[in-house]
Every structure is written in C-alpha cells, then in structure tokens.
C-alpha cells in the first residue's frame, strides 16, 4: 500500500515536470524539429526544407550506387504521385559527396522521378542528419517535426503510406 502511494505521488509530481517541457533543438530523431537545409536541385534551383512547412515531407537520403536506395525509388515515386495532392512532398537528397552528379542525373532520368532531387555536394545534410547508412528516410510532419526515422531499405510502399497517412490527415 505504501509502495503504491509513493508511486502515485511520484507520478503526480512528475506530471508537473512534463507540463513545463521546454522546446527542443533540431535533431535527426523522432519528436525533434527536423534540421533545416537548403540545397540545389538538378536544375540548379535552391530548395530548402523550410519552404515546405505546412506540408508532410519525406526526406530520403540516397546514392545511385546503393542497391536498396535504387529499389525503393519506385515506391517513393508512386506514393508521391498519389498523395502529393493531399500535401505530401518527397525531397530525395542525393549524397553527392559519395556519388556523382552524372550518376544521379542518369538514375533520375532512367526512373522518371518527378519529385525534387537535391544535391548534397558538401555532405552538410548527411552530417546534420547523422547519416550512418543508406538509404535513410525521415518523415516530417506539417509542423516541421520528425515523426518517423526509417534507417535502411528498401522501404515498401505500404510502409511509406502507413507512416504518412495520419500526418496528411492533420489540418495544415
């Protein structure tokens, strides 16, 4: 009885701490604001993550030589085609520091990818997102907060759809 009473008091006291939770620093983990970035796309136009605040964004880090990255691109394209009208954006960040622009371009043409493909020439996004293995996928909600981190691949289309469905249902 005493144990339970102490536990209940402790639970109640820590509830107050939760209510006063402080704002988080951007970090590549679920529940944290997504680190912002600005990169050139294949046409030379600068695109930043912040441009898409209010939309659900799939940030996919990939390289053309990476088998699982190549295998999951059709799923990304399919999800983008069917859900972009609902507010879904796919930003495919090519890890250009460990790839080549030519190979990235050839891959995009070969697979007829229509979402923005960005070139991470300085490795800045890989570092900000602490890239450890390719592909890595971060799903960012309409408030700019990371909802899911999916390391490795290839990701099935069902996985991507299930992860963005609830986020897309939220009001912009």
């Amino acid at each position: 009885m005493v144990t339970l009473l102490v536990g209940a008091l402790w639970t109640s006291a820590s509830r107050e701490v939760a209510a006063g939770d402080v704002a988080r620093m951007p970090s590549p983990h679920a529940g944290f604001p997504a680190p912002d970035f600005a990169l050139e796309d294949l046409s030379g136009e600068t695109v930043s993550l912040a441009d898409y605040r209010g939309q659900v964004v799939i940030v996919n880090l990939w390289a053309s030589w990476c088998g699982p990255c190549r295998a999951e691109m059709p799923a990304l394209q399919s999800v983008y085609e069917s859900l972009s009208a609902e507010g879904l954006v796919v930003l495919a960040v090519n890890s250009t520091a460990q790839d080549t622009e030519e190979a990235a371009r050839a891959f995009v043409t070969e697979h007829a990818l229509t979402f923005p493909v960005l070139l991470d020439r300085e490795d800045s996004v890989s570092q900000a997102y602490r890239l450890r293995s390719l592909p890595s996928t971060f799903i960012v909600d309409r408030q700019g907060v990371i909802d899911s981190v999916l390391i490795g691949g290839p990701l099935a289309e069902a996985v991507l759809r299930s992860k963005v469905a609830d986020l897309l249902a939220e009001a912009p």
């Binding site: 999916l150 990701l155 289309e157 996985v159 992860k163």
Partner: peptide
C-alpha cells in the same frame, strides 16, 4: 495489428506485410 490499423496502405501494397522494416 499494425497492418490492420493502416489497412488502406496495405491494401495498396499487400507485400508490405513481409517488409523487413522494424518500425511497422
């Protein structure tokens, strides 16, 4: 259980049931 909660997604891609992803 996860697939049932996201039935629409898995009806589009039933093979996603055997995905190697650990977040589902």
């Amino acid at each position: 259980g996860y697939a049932l909660a996201h039935l629409d997604a898995y009806l589009v891609d039933p093979l996603g049931l055997i995905s190697n992803n650990l977040a589902t």
